[in-house]
Amino acid sequence: MTGAPDEELIRLARRGDEQAFASLVERYYRAAYASAYAVLGNAGDAEEIAQETFVQVYEKLDRLRDPGALPGWIWRIARDTALKHIRKHKRIRPVGDAPDLNLDEQRPHEPLVAAEEKEQLIAALGELPDEMREAVLMRYWEELEYEEMAERTGVSAAALYQRVCRGLKRLRETIERKDALA
């Protein structure tokens, strides 16, 4: 069932087919996780939000009129859920992801620098328009080819390439602007 098109899986899931919905979750889990991670910068929370996202997707599946819009819909739900999570947990917003920082290697200054750099990147990603951020992260975090991205989004590969380039340029400008203000 894992190779079935989204439309078929959605139809079956709406009829209560557990395997069909699990296949959809498996197909887009990494997308939801990446979308949440781009907001939270924290793997554990992003995974929790990814799971919460699919609970919401299941609850609202009947409202999805265009099956082709499913990937973008999942991205937005994951992002909105992550933003709500931040609003609720303002006081504990993480700034770094410890497993990436080699805290165990006894180089006390490096984790702080890395955490700042990462926080800056996550903040800049947060300022990108949704469609640019989605394209950039599909390309570099999900490591999808442009053809795969086109298949998923229904947007041409050429247009997605433009979005990625514009997104990268916008990211650079945002990071430089923040550096100048710092």
Binding site: V25, Y29, E47, D97, W141
Partner: peptide
């Protein structure tokens, strides 16, 4: 700073359990 690897199959199992 890409997110650490995640297992989509395990994720799907966790969602179904939820």
């Amino acid at each position: 700073y890409a997110p650490p690897a995640v297992d989509s199959r395990k994720g799907a199992q966790a969602v179904m359990a939820r």
